[in-house]
Design a protein around this nucleic acid. Structure first.
Lengths: 235, 235
DNA sequence: CCGGCTACTGTGGTCGGACCACACAGCTGG
DNA sequence: CCAGCTGTGTGGTCCGACCACAGTAGCCGG
Protein backbone atom coordinates (compact mmCIF):
# COMPACT_ATOMS: atom_id res chain seq x y z
CA UNK A 1 0.00 0.00 0.00
CA UNK A 2 1.57 3.25 -1.11
CA UNK A 3 1.49 6.28 1.15
CA UNK A 4 -0.51 8.27 -1.40
CA UNK A 5 -3.05 5.44 -1.52
CA UNK A 6 -3.51 5.77 2.21
CA UNK A 7 -4.44 9.41 1.69
CA UNK A 8 -6.75 8.57 -1.20
CA UNK A 9 -8.61 5.88 0.72
CA UNK A 10 -8.89 8.09 3.78
CA UNK A 11 -10.46 10.92 1.80
CA UNK A 12 -12.72 8.65 -0.25
CA UNK A 13 -14.02 7.02 2.92
CA UNK A 14 -14.77 10.42 4.42
CA UNK A 15 -16.56 11.40 1.22
CA UNK A 16 -18.68 8.28 1.29
CA UNK A 17 -19.78 8.54 4.90
CA UNK A 18 -20.54 12.23 4.62
CA UNK A 19 -17.74 13.53 6.83
CA UNK A 20 -16.63 15.52 3.82
CA UNK A 21 -19.23 17.20 1.63
CA UNK A 22 -18.97 19.30 -1.49
CA UNK A 23 -18.07 22.91 -0.73
CA UNK A 24 -16.06 22.00 2.32
CA UNK A 25 -12.40 22.89 2.71
CA UNK A 26 -9.78 20.22 3.30
CA UNK A 27 -7.15 20.61 6.00
CA UNK A 28 -3.85 21.99 4.74
CA UNK A 29 -1.38 19.65 3.14
CA UNK A 30 0.96 19.85 6.10
CA UNK A 31 -1.84 19.11 8.56
CA UNK A 32 -3.13 16.19 6.51
CA UNK A 33 0.35 14.78 6.28
CA UNK A 34 0.79 14.87 10.02
CA UNK A 35 -2.66 13.38 10.69
CA UNK A 36 -2.06 10.40 8.40
CA UNK A 37 1.57 9.91 9.26
CA UNK A 38 2.87 10.43 5.73
CA UNK A 39 5.00 13.07 4.10
CA UNK A 40 3.63 16.18 2.50
CA UNK A 41 4.84 14.93 -0.88
CA UNK A 42 2.66 11.84 -0.61
CA UNK A 43 -0.33 13.97 0.35
CA UNK A 44 0.32 16.14 -2.67
CA UNK A 45 0.40 13.13 -5.00
CA UNK A 46 -2.99 12.02 -3.72
CA UNK A 47 -4.50 15.50 -3.96
CA UNK A 48 -3.17 15.78 -7.49
CA UNK A 49 -5.13 12.67 -8.46
CA UNK A 50 -8.30 13.93 -6.78
CA UNK A 51 -7.93 17.24 -8.57
CA UNK A 52 -7.56 15.43 -11.89
CA UNK A 53 -10.69 13.47 -11.00
CA UNK A 54 -12.60 16.72 -10.53
CA UNK A 55 -13.20 16.10 -6.83
CA UNK A 56 -11.34 19.12 -5.53
CA UNK A 57 -9.91 22.43 -6.65
CA UNK A 58 -6.73 23.91 -5.25
CA UNK A 59 -5.80 27.57 -4.95
CA UNK A 60 -2.92 29.35 -3.31
CA UNK A 61 -3.16 32.29 -0.98
CA UNK A 62 -5.45 32.62 1.98
CA UNK A 63 -9.11 33.24 2.70
CA UNK A 64 -12.29 31.35 1.81
CA UNK A 65 -11.34 30.39 -1.72
CA UNK A 66 -7.80 29.31 -0.93
CA UNK A 67 -6.62 25.83 -0.15
CA UNK A 68 -8.16 22.58 -1.36
CA UNK A 69 -11.95 22.88 -1.70
CA UNK A 70 -14.20 19.93 -2.49
CA UNK A 71 -16.10 20.34 -5.72
CA UNK A 72 -18.07 18.06 -8.03
CA UNK A 73 -16.74 18.36 -11.56
CA UNK A 74 -17.34 14.89 -12.94
CA UNK A 75 -16.66 15.97 -16.49
CA UNK A 76 -13.00 16.74 -15.82
CA UNK A 77 -11.77 13.15 -15.45
CA UNK A 78 -13.92 11.72 -18.22
CA UNK A 79 -12.78 14.46 -20.51
CA UNK A 80 -9.07 14.01 -19.99
CA UNK A 81 -9.32 10.22 -19.71
CA UNK A 82 -11.12 9.94 -23.03
CA UNK A 83 -8.70 12.33 -24.66
CA UNK A 84 -5.71 10.43 -23.34
CA UNK A 85 -7.04 7.07 -24.42
CA UNK A 86 -7.98 8.27 -27.84
CA UNK A 87 -4.37 9.44 -27.98
CA UNK A 88 -3.13 5.98 -26.99
CA UNK A 89 -5.31 4.50 -29.75
CA UNK A 90 -7.30 2.47 -27.22
CA UNK A 91 -10.43 3.50 -29.12
CA UNK A 92 -10.76 4.81 -32.60
CA UNK A 93 -12.67 7.96 -33.32
CA UNK A 94 -15.35 5.96 -35.08
CA UNK A 95 -16.42 4.15 -31.93
CA UNK A 96 -16.52 7.40 -30.06
CA UNK A 97 -18.74 8.93 -32.71
CA UNK A 98 -20.97 5.87 -32.71
CA UNK A 99 -21.39 6.17 -28.95
CA UNK A 100 -22.16 9.82 -29.35
CA UNK A 101 -24.98 9.07 -31.76
CA UNK A 102 -26.40 6.48 -29.41
CA UNK A 103 -26.43 8.79 -26.39
CA UNK A 104 -27.58 11.86 -28.21
CA UNK A 105 -30.45 10.19 -30.03
CA UNK A 106 -31.69 8.85 -26.72
CA UNK A 107 -31.25 12.23 -25.06
CA UNK A 108 -33.28 14.19 -27.59
CA UNK A 109 -35.96 11.50 -27.53
CA UNK A 110 -36.11 11.84 -23.79
CA UNK A 111 -36.14 15.61 -24.00
CA UNK A 112 -39.08 15.42 -26.38
CA UNK A 113 -41.14 13.60 -23.76
CA UNK A 114 -40.14 15.53 -20.66
CA UNK A 115 -40.36 19.01 -22.10
CA UNK A 116 -37.94 21.24 -20.20
CA UNK A 117 -37.16 24.79 -21.25
CA UNK A 118 -35.60 25.07 -24.70
CA UNK A 119 -34.62 28.72 -24.25
CA UNK A 120 -30.91 28.08 -23.81
CA UNK A 121 -30.78 25.86 -26.87
CA UNK A 122 -32.73 28.38 -28.94
CA UNK A 123 -30.37 31.15 -27.86
CA UNK A 124 -27.40 29.12 -29.00
CA UNK A 125 -29.05 28.52 -32.37
CA UNK A 126 -29.68 32.24 -32.71
CA UNK A 127 -25.99 32.92 -32.12
CA UNK A 128 -25.08 30.30 -34.68
CA UNK A 129 -27.33 31.90 -37.28
CA UNK A 130 -24.96 34.88 -37.47
CA UNK A 131 -23.69 34.73 -41.06
CA UNK A 132 -20.39 36.45 -40.18
CA UNK A 133 -19.44 33.71 -37.76
CA UNK A 134 -16.04 32.09 -38.14
CA UNK A 135 -16.17 28.35 -38.84
CA UNK A 136 -14.25 27.47 -35.69
CA UNK A 137 -16.51 29.64 -33.58
CA UNK A 138 -19.48 27.99 -35.18
CA UNK A 139 -18.11 24.57 -34.24
CA UNK A 140 -17.58 25.72 -30.67
CA UNK A 141 -21.18 26.87 -30.42
CA UNK A 142 -22.23 23.64 -32.11
CA UNK A 143 -20.52 21.65 -29.36
CA UNK A 144 -22.31 23.67 -26.70
CA UNK A 145 -25.63 23.17 -28.48
CA UNK A 146 -25.26 19.41 -28.54
CA UNK A 147 -24.25 19.32 -24.89
CA UNK A 148 -27.30 21.42 -24.09
CA UNK A 149 -29.45 18.88 -25.94
CA UNK A 150 -28.02 16.11 -23.81
CA UNK A 151 -28.66 18.10 -20.66
CA UNK A 152 -32.32 18.46 -21.68
CA UNK A 153 -32.71 14.72 -21.17
CA UNK A 154 -32.51 15.32 -17.44
CA UNK A 155 -29.87 12.62 -17.03
CA UNK A 156 -26.70 14.21 -15.70
CA UNK A 157 -24.56 11.16 -16.43
CA UNK A 158 -25.56 11.00 -20.07
CA UNK A 159 -24.99 14.74 -20.42
CA UNK A 160 -21.62 14.32 -18.81
CA UNK A 161 -20.52 11.52 -21.10
CA UNK A 162 -21.69 13.58 -24.05
CA UNK A 163 -19.62 16.53 -22.87
CA UNK A 164 -16.54 14.38 -22.52
CA UNK A 165 -17.05 12.75 -25.90
CA UNK A 166 -17.30 16.14 -27.53
CA UNK A 167 -14.17 17.22 -25.73
CA UNK A 168 -12.21 14.14 -26.70
CA UNK A 169 -12.91 14.55 -30.41
CA UNK A 170 -12.88 18.34 -30.39
CA UNK A 171 -9.31 18.43 -31.65
CA UNK A 172 -10.15 16.06 -34.49
CA UNK A 173 -13.15 18.10 -35.54
CA UNK A 174 -11.20 21.35 -35.53
CA UNK A 175 -8.48 19.67 -37.53
CA UNK A 176 -10.99 18.62 -40.17
CA UNK A 177 -11.86 22.23 -40.98
CA UNK A 178 -9.42 22.58 -43.91
CA UNK A 179 -10.62 19.34 -45.48
CA UNK A 180 -14.16 20.50 -46.10
CA UNK A 181 -14.47 22.16 -49.48
CA UNK A 182 -17.83 23.89 -49.33
CA UNK A 183 -18.28 25.32 -45.84
CA UNK A 184 -21.12 27.72 -46.64
CA UNK A 185 -23.21 24.86 -47.96
CA UNK A 186 -22.40 22.59 -44.99
CA UNK A 187 -23.08 25.33 -42.46
CA UNK A 188 -26.47 26.05 -44.00
CA UNK A 189 -27.29 22.36 -43.83
CA UNK A 190 -26.20 22.10 -40.21
CA UNK A 191 -28.26 25.15 -39.26
CA UNK A 192 -31.36 23.70 -40.93
CA UNK A 193 -30.92 20.40 -39.13
CA UNK A 194 -30.33 22.02 -35.74
CA UNK A 195 -33.62 23.86 -36.01
CA UNK A 196 -35.32 20.69 -37.18
CA UNK A 197 -34.07 18.77 -34.15
CA UNK A 198 -35.22 21.44 -31.73
CA UNK A 199 -38.60 21.75 -33.45
CA UNK A 200 -39.09 18.00 -33.17
CA UNK A 201 -38.22 18.13 -29.48
CA UNK A 202 -40.61 21.02 -28.94
CA UNK A 203 -43.36 19.12 -30.76
CA UNK A 204 -42.80 16.05 -28.63
CA UNK A 205 -41.86 14.01 -31.69
CA UNK A 206 -39.60 11.39 -30.10
CA UNK A 207 -38.89 9.30 -33.18
CA UNK A 208 -38.42 12.34 -35.37
CA UNK A 209 -36.01 14.03 -33.00
CA UNK A 210 -33.91 10.88 -32.60
CA UNK A 211 -33.80 10.10 -36.30
CA UNK A 212 -32.96 13.68 -37.24
CA UNK A 213 -30.11 13.95 -34.77
CA UNK A 214 -28.60 10.62 -35.83
CA UNK A 215 -28.70 11.62 -39.49
CA UNK A 216 -27.31 15.04 -38.60
CA UNK A 217 -24.31 13.62 -36.76
CA UNK A 218 -23.58 10.84 -39.23
CA UNK A 219 -23.66 13.11 -42.25
CA UNK A 220 -21.44 15.68 -40.59
CA UNK A 221 -18.75 13.13 -39.85
CA UNK A 222 -19.02 11.70 -43.35
CA UNK A 223 -18.58 15.10 -44.97
CA UNK A 224 -15.71 16.08 -42.68
CA UNK A 225 -13.93 12.83 -43.47
CA UNK A 226 -13.78 11.52 -39.91
CA UNK A 227 -15.97 8.48 -40.38
CA UNK A 228 -16.86 5.86 -42.95
CA UNK A 229 -20.43 6.14 -44.25
CA UNK A 230 -21.50 2.57 -43.43
CA UNK A 231 -20.95 2.72 -39.69
CA UNK A 232 -24.03 4.43 -38.41
CA UNK A 233 -25.32 3.72 -34.94
CA UNK A 234 -28.08 4.96 -32.74
CA UNK A 235 -31.70 4.05 -32.46
CA UNK B 1 1.30 26.67 -15.64
CA UNK B 2 2.29 24.23 -12.95
CA UNK B 3 5.43 22.18 -13.33
CA UNK B 4 3.46 18.93 -13.24
CA UNK B 5 1.26 20.28 -16.03
CA UNK B 6 4.35 20.78 -18.13
CA UNK B 7 5.13 17.10 -17.70
CA UNK B 8 1.55 16.08 -18.45
CA UNK B 9 1.37 18.14 -21.63
CA UNK B 10 4.75 16.91 -22.76
CA UNK B 11 3.76 13.27 -22.37
CA UNK B 12 0.31 13.75 -23.86
CA UNK B 13 1.81 15.44 -26.90
CA UNK B 14 4.24 12.57 -27.35
CA UNK B 15 1.36 10.12 -27.05
CA UNK B 16 -0.63 11.96 -29.65
CA UNK B 17 2.10 12.22 -32.24
CA UNK B 18 3.17 8.62 -31.79
CA UNK B 19 6.54 9.25 -30.18
CA UNK B 20 5.23 7.20 -27.30
CA UNK B 21 3.19 4.08 -27.96
CA UNK B 22 1.56 1.54 -25.69
CA UNK B 23 4.02 -1.01 -24.38
CA UNK B 24 6.90 1.42 -24.42
CA UNK B 25 8.88 2.30 -21.31
CA UNK B 26 9.17 5.88 -20.13
CA UNK B 27 12.50 7.38 -19.15
CA UNK B 28 13.19 7.25 -15.45
CA UNK B 29 11.74 9.91 -13.21
CA UNK B 30 15.13 11.50 -12.65
CA UNK B 31 15.87 11.60 -16.37
CA UNK B 32 12.48 13.04 -17.21
CA UNK B 33 12.91 15.69 -14.54
CA UNK B 34 16.23 16.77 -15.97
CA UNK B 35 14.93 16.78 -19.56
CA UNK B 36 11.98 19.02 -18.71
CA UNK B 37 13.78 21.20 -16.22
CA UNK B 38 11.51 20.38 -13.30
CA UNK B 39 12.04 18.57 -10.05
CA UNK B 40 11.52 14.87 -9.60
CA UNK B 41 8.60 15.57 -7.29
CA UNK B 42 6.76 17.41 -10.03
CA UNK B 43 7.40 14.54 -12.44
CA UNK B 44 6.02 12.12 -9.87
CA UNK B 45 2.83 14.15 -9.45
CA UNK B 46 2.22 14.02 -13.19
CA UNK B 47 2.97 10.30 -13.41
CA UNK B 48 0.61 9.67 -10.52
CA UNK B 49 -2.20 11.29 -12.48
CA UNK B 50 -1.39 9.30 -15.60
CA UNK B 51 -1.35 6.11 -13.57
CA UNK B 52 -4.76 6.97 -12.11
CA UNK B 53 -5.95 7.58 -15.66
CA UNK B 54 -4.86 4.08 -16.65
CA UNK B 55 -2.25 5.35 -19.10
CA UNK B 56 0.78 3.85 -17.40
CA UNK B 57 1.77 1.28 -14.83
CA UNK B 58 4.69 1.72 -12.46
CA UNK B 59 6.83 -0.96 -10.89
CA UNK B 60 9.97 -0.86 -8.81
CA UNK B 61 13.10 -2.88 -9.42
CA UNK B 62 14.89 -3.37 -12.66
CA UNK B 63 14.45 -5.29 -15.90
CA UNK B 64 11.81 -5.19 -18.61
CA UNK B 65 8.77 -4.90 -16.37
CA UNK B 66 10.19 -2.28 -14.06
CA UNK B 67 9.80 1.45 -14.37
CA UNK B 68 6.85 3.29 -15.90
CA UNK B 69 5.35 1.34 -18.80
CA UNK B 70 2.65 2.75 -21.05
CA UNK B 71 -0.56 0.73 -20.95
CA UNK B 72 -4.13 1.27 -22.08
CA UNK B 73 -6.50 0.65 -19.19
CA UNK B 74 -9.30 3.06 -19.94
CA UNK B 75 -11.62 1.47 -17.42
CA UNK B 76 -9.50 2.48 -14.44
CA UNK B 77 -10.24 6.21 -14.51
CA UNK B 78 -13.90 5.88 -15.40
CA UNK B 79 -14.36 3.36 -12.66
CA UNK B 80 -12.83 5.41 -9.88
CA UNK B 81 -14.22 8.67 -11.20
CA UNK B 82 -17.76 7.35 -11.27
CA UNK B 83 -17.34 5.83 -7.82
CA UNK B 84 -15.97 9.09 -6.42
CA UNK B 85 -18.71 11.19 -7.90
CA UNK B 86 -21.46 8.88 -6.80
CA UNK B 87 -19.85 9.31 -3.36
CA UNK B 88 -20.02 13.09 -3.69
CA UNK B 89 -23.70 12.77 -4.63
CA UNK B 90 -23.08 14.36 -8.04
CA UNK B 91 -25.38 11.72 -9.58
CA UNK B 92 -27.98 9.54 -8.01
CA UNK B 93 -28.02 5.80 -8.56
CA UNK B 94 -31.20 6.03 -10.59
CA UNK B 95 -29.57 8.04 -13.37
CA UNK B 96 -26.71 5.60 -13.45
CA UNK B 97 -29.11 2.68 -13.80
CA UNK B 98 -31.04 4.50 -16.50
CA UNK B 99 -27.84 5.05 -18.45
CA UNK B 100 -26.99 1.41 -18.00
CA UNK B 101 -30.28 0.35 -19.58
CA UNK B 102 -29.73 2.69 -22.50
CA UNK B 103 -26.25 1.42 -23.25
CA UNK B 104 -26.98 -2.23 -22.68
CA UNK B 105 -30.13 -2.32 -24.78
CA UNK B 106 -28.20 -0.79 -27.64
CA UNK B 107 -25.31 -3.19 -27.13
CA UNK B 108 -27.39 -6.36 -27.28
CA UNK B 109 -29.24 -5.02 -30.29
CA UNK B 110 -25.93 -4.40 -31.98
CA UNK B 111 -24.65 -7.82 -30.96
CA UNK B 112 -27.70 -9.41 -32.54
CA UNK B 113 -26.82 -7.93 -35.91
CA UNK B 114 -23.06 -8.42 -35.91
CA UNK B 115 -22.98 -11.99 -34.61
CA UNK B 116 -19.71 -12.52 -32.77
CA UNK B 117 -19.00 -15.63 -30.74
CA UNK B 118 -21.36 -16.15 -27.83
CA UNK B 119 -19.23 -18.87 -26.24
CA UNK B 120 -17.91 -16.75 -23.38
CA UNK B 121 -21.38 -15.51 -22.50
CA UNK B 122 -22.81 -19.06 -22.65
CA UNK B 123 -20.05 -20.32 -20.37
CA UNK B 124 -20.88 -17.64 -17.82
CA UNK B 125 -24.54 -18.62 -17.93
CA UNK B 126 -23.59 -22.25 -17.38
CA UNK B 127 -21.64 -21.26 -14.28
CA UNK B 128 -24.57 -19.22 -13.05
CA UNK B 129 -26.92 -22.20 -13.45
CA UNK B 130 -25.16 -23.94 -10.57
CA UNK B 131 -27.94 -24.22 -7.93
CA UNK B 132 -25.43 -24.23 -5.05
CA UNK B 133 -24.10 -20.81 -5.96
CA UNK B 134 -23.97 -18.15 -3.27
CA UNK B 135 -26.07 -15.07 -4.02
CA UNK B 136 -23.09 -12.73 -3.95
CA UNK B 137 -21.12 -14.99 -6.28
CA UNK B 138 -24.12 -15.10 -8.58
CA UNK B 139 -24.20 -11.31 -8.67
CA UNK B 140 -20.50 -11.20 -9.47
CA UNK B 141 -20.98 -13.57 -12.40
CA UNK B 142 -24.03 -11.56 -13.39
CA UNK B 143 -21.88 -8.43 -13.60
CA UNK B 144 -19.38 -10.22 -15.80
CA UNK B 145 -22.16 -11.53 -18.03
CA UNK B 146 -23.57 -8.08 -18.64
CA UNK B 147 -20.13 -6.67 -19.38
CA UNK B 148 -19.61 -9.52 -21.83
CA UNK B 149 -22.88 -8.59 -23.52
CA UNK B 150 -21.68 -5.03 -23.91
CA UNK B 151 -18.39 -6.24 -25.35
CA UNK B 152 -20.30 -8.25 -27.96
CA UNK B 153 -21.47 -4.97 -29.47
CA UNK B 154 -17.95 -4.46 -30.79
CA UNK B 155 -17.83 -0.95 -29.38
CA UNK B 156 -15.02 -0.77 -26.83
CA UNK B 157 -16.15 2.58 -25.45
CA UNK B 158 -19.67 1.39 -24.72
CA UNK B 159 -18.30 -1.76 -23.13
CA UNK B 160 -15.99 0.35 -21.05
CA UNK B 161 -18.70 2.68 -19.81
CA UNK B 162 -20.80 -0.36 -18.98
CA UNK B 163 -17.95 -1.84 -16.96
CA UNK B 164 -17.48 1.36 -15.01
CA UNK B 165 -21.19 1.74 -14.37
CA UNK B 166 -21.35 -1.78 -13.02
CA UNK B 167 -18.36 -1.04 -10.82
CA UNK B 168 -19.76 2.19 -9.47
CA UNK B 169 -23.05 0.63 -8.37
CA UNK B 170 -21.56 -2.73 -7.41
CA UNK B 171 -21.48 -1.76 -3.75
CA UNK B 172 -25.12 -0.70 -3.85
CA UNK B 173 -26.21 -3.95 -5.48
CA UNK B 174 -24.35 -6.07 -2.96
CA UNK B 175 -25.85 -4.00 -0.16
CA UNK B 176 -29.33 -4.74 -1.47
CA UNK B 177 -28.93 -8.49 -0.95
CA UNK B 178 -30.54 -8.60 2.51
CA UNK B 179 -33.55 -6.61 1.31
CA UNK B 180 -34.76 -9.19 -1.17
CA UNK B 181 -37.12 -11.64 0.45
CA UNK B 182 -37.41 -14.45 -2.07
CA UNK B 183 -33.98 -15.00 -3.59
CA UNK B 184 -34.62 -18.45 -5.10
CA UNK B 185 -37.55 -17.08 -7.06
CA UNK B 186 -35.64 -14.00 -8.21
CA UNK B 187 -32.58 -16.04 -9.20
CA UNK B 188 -34.70 -18.39 -11.28
CA UNK B 189 -36.28 -15.41 -13.01
CA UNK B 190 -32.90 -13.81 -13.70
CA UNK B 191 -31.54 -17.07 -15.12
CA UNK B 192 -34.54 -17.45 -17.44
CA UNK B 193 -34.13 -13.89 -18.69
CA UNK B 194 -30.40 -14.22 -19.23
CA UNK B 195 -30.96 -17.20 -21.48
CA UNK B 196 -33.77 -15.37 -23.26
CA UNK B 197 -31.50 -12.40 -23.98
CA UNK B 198 -28.74 -14.59 -25.35
CA UNK B 199 -31.18 -16.63 -27.43
CA UNK B 200 -32.57 -13.43 -28.94
CA UNK B 201 -29.04 -12.26 -29.76
CA UNK B 202 -28.23 -15.61 -31.34
CA UNK B 203 -31.42 -15.47 -33.40
CA UNK B 204 -30.60 -11.98 -34.64
CA UNK B 205 -33.74 -10.60 -32.99
CA UNK B 206 -32.66 -7.00 -32.39
CA UNK B 207 -35.90 -5.66 -30.97
CA UNK B 208 -36.46 -8.74 -28.83
CA UNK B 209 -32.99 -8.67 -27.35
CA UNK B 210 -33.20 -4.97 -26.51
CA UNK B 211 -36.66 -5.18 -25.00
CA UNK B 212 -35.78 -8.24 -22.95
CA UNK B 213 -32.65 -6.76 -21.49
CA UNK B 214 -34.36 -3.49 -20.57
CA UNK B 215 -37.15 -5.35 -18.83
CA UNK B 216 -34.62 -7.59 -17.14
CA UNK B 217 -32.63 -4.70 -15.70
CA UNK B 218 -35.59 -2.59 -14.71
CA UNK B 219 -37.34 -5.39 -12.90
CA UNK B 220 -34.20 -6.38 -11.05
CA UNK B 221 -33.70 -2.89 -9.69
CA UNK B 222 -37.35 -2.63 -8.77
CA UNK B 223 -37.29 -5.87 -6.82
CA UNK B 224 -34.01 -5.03 -5.11
CA UNK B 225 -35.37 -1.67 -4.08
CA UNK B 226 -32.79 0.48 -5.82
CA UNK B 227 -35.07 2.19 -8.29
CA UNK B 228 -38.60 3.50 -8.63
CA UNK B 229 -40.75 1.53 -11.09
CA UNK B 230 -41.77 4.48 -13.28
CA UNK B 231 -38.29 5.55 -14.37
CA UNK B 232 -37.49 3.12 -17.14
CA UNK B 233 -35.16 4.09 -19.93
CA UNK B 234 -33.69 2.51 -23.00
CA UNK B 235 -35.04 2.42 -26.42
C1' DC C 1 -11.77 59.03 13.26
C1' DC C 2 -10.60 57.35 8.77
C1' DG C 3 -7.83 55.72 4.87
C1' DG C 4 -3.99 53.61 3.04
C1' DC C 5 0.20 51.29 3.58
C1' DT C 6 2.77 47.51 5.68
C1' DA C 7 4.11 43.56 7.81
C1' DC C 8 2.33 38.97 9.12
C1' DT C 9 0.37 34.51 8.43
C1' DG C 10 -1.13 30.56 6.12
C1' DT C 11 -1.86 28.54 1.72
C1' DG C 12 -0.22 25.77 -2.29
C1' DG C 13 4.04 25.26 -5.65
C1' DT C 14 8.70 23.87 -6.24
C1' DC C 15 13.11 22.25 -5.48
C1' DG C 16 17.22 19.40 -3.93
C1' DG C 17 18.93 15.88 -1.44
C1' DA C 18 18.89 11.82 1.00
C1' DC C 19 17.68 7.13 2.08
C1' DC C 20 14.97 2.80 1.43
C1' DA C 21 13.17 -1.60 -0.77
C1' DC C 22 13.21 -3.94 -4.68
C1' DA C 23 14.58 -6.79 -8.74
C1' DC C 24 17.46 -7.94 -12.18
C1' DA C 25 22.43 -8.53 -14.21
C1' DG C 26 26.80 -9.81 -13.73
C1' DC C 27 30.59 -11.20 -11.25
C1' DT C 28 32.87 -14.35 -8.01
C1' DG C 29 34.08 -18.12 -5.46
C1' DG C 30 33.29 -22.72 -4.47
C1' DC D 1 28.83 -25.50 -13.51
C1' DC D 2 26.13 -23.39 -10.11
C1' DA D 3 25.04 -20.79 -5.84
C1' DG D 4 25.56 -16.70 -3.73
C1' DC D 5 27.01 -12.09 -3.41
C1' DT D 6 27.38 -7.48 -5.26
C1' DG D 7 26.40 -3.71 -8.27
C1' DT D 8 23.14 -0.81 -10.46
C1' DG D 9 19.01 1.38 -11.66
C1' DT D 10 14.21 1.62 -10.61
C1' DG D 11 10.26 3.64 -8.02
C1' DG D 12 8.71 4.99 -2.96
C1' DT D 13 9.28 8.04 0.80
C1' DC D 14 10.69 11.52 3.64
C1' DC D 15 12.73 15.96 5.12
C1' DG D 16 13.76 20.72 4.96
C1' DA D 17 13.90 24.74 2.65
C1' DC D 18 12.34 28.52 -0.17
C1' DC D 19 9.00 30.92 -3.24
C1' DA D 20 4.64 33.37 -4.83
C1' DC D 21 0.39 34.45 -3.50
C1' DA D 22 -3.72 36.42 -1.09
C1' DG D 23 -6.10 37.72 2.54
C1' DT D 24 -5.74 39.98 7.39
C1' DA D 25 -4.39 42.61 11.20
C1' DG D 26 -2.08 46.33 12.72
C1' DC D 27 0.34 50.47 12.27
C1' DC D 28 0.84 55.18 10.82
C1' DG D 29 -0.25 59.51 8.89
C1' DG D 30 -3.73 62.54 7.65
Amino acid sequence: MRASDVVLRHLEAQLEDGTLVVGMRLPGERTLAEQLGVSRGSVREALQVLEAMGVLRRAVGSGQDAGAVLVAEPSAPLDSALRLHVATRAFDVQQVVETRMLLESWAVGRAATTGGSLDAARALLADMDDPDLDVRDFLRLDARFHVELAALSGNALVALIMTSIRGSIEAYVQRSVPRVTDWPDLLAKLRREHHAVLDAVAAGDVAGASATVVRHIAEFYERSGLQQPESRGGG
